[in-house]
């Protein structure tokens, strides 16, 4: 009548059986052997400074408004640029991490960045190329069909959505550009 009485469940296997069957069973039974216990503890880290030297700031590095100052060390890959950079800078300068607007602007910046970068790549000797960059050729070399079907996978139920979500925005953007162009041409006539 568990759990409607005080009765506790029976162990499925005894301690001896578990110890014999599973390598290392019970090795960390004692919490003193668990490195994450207690959660907060003072440990030797290798740091030989009270506050780290400051990494030189090249350009204007964006930062969260929740920081008192630019952290002494930071990543320097892909500085802000273009329209996406402006959107991201606004997100950092105006909104705290607690505001949805902060994250929604950053996600918008990501989408704009993808379009900007794709368009810019068309003017280079190595434009974006969806076939190789998506790795979709591995569908042929790594059993795409066999891996998916007849294997009880939950994601197969909505796999039809993927091409809609990938191609859909491009079709919508194309339709919008076409409609806008047609309106302009008609107005000029």
């Amino acid at each position: 009548m568990i759990p409607y009485t005080k009765e506790a469940p029976q162990q499925i296997a005894s301690e001896e059986e578990l110890r014999a069957r599973i390598p290392g069973w019970g090795a960390d039974l004692d919490r003193k052997d668990r490195p994450a216990v207690p959660r907060e503890q003072s440990l030797t880290t290798g740091a030989h400074w009270e506050f780290p030297d400051r990494q030189p700031e090249k350009g204007r590095r964006e930062r969260s408004v929740e920081h008192r100052f630019l952290t002494p060390v930071f990543g320097t890959t892909v500085p802000l640029k273009g329209l996406s950079g402006g959107i991201r800078r606004l997100a950092y300068a105006r909104y705290s991490e607690g505001r949805a607007a902060h994250w929604l602007l950053l996600i918008l910046g990501d989408r704009v960045d993808a379009v900007e970068s794709h368009v810019a790549s068309l003017a280079t000797r190595r434009p974006d190329e969806p076939i190789t960059q998506s790795g979709v050729v591995s569908e042929l070399s790594h059993d795409g069909l066999r891996s998916r079907f007849g294997r009880g996978r939950a994601d197969v139920k909505h796999v039809w959505l993927d091409p809609v979500l990938v191609v859909g925005p491009w079709l919508m953007a194309g339709g919008l550009v076409f409609a806008l162009g047609r309106t302009v041409v008609r107005a000029l006539r």
Binding site: E62, S64, E66, T71, P72, F74, Y92, E97
Partner: peptide, 9 residues
């Protein structure tokens, strides 16, 4: 707290 200027969380 000393390595990520973009977020405190």
């Amino acid at each position: 707290h000393n390595v990520n200027p973009n977020a405190t969380a």
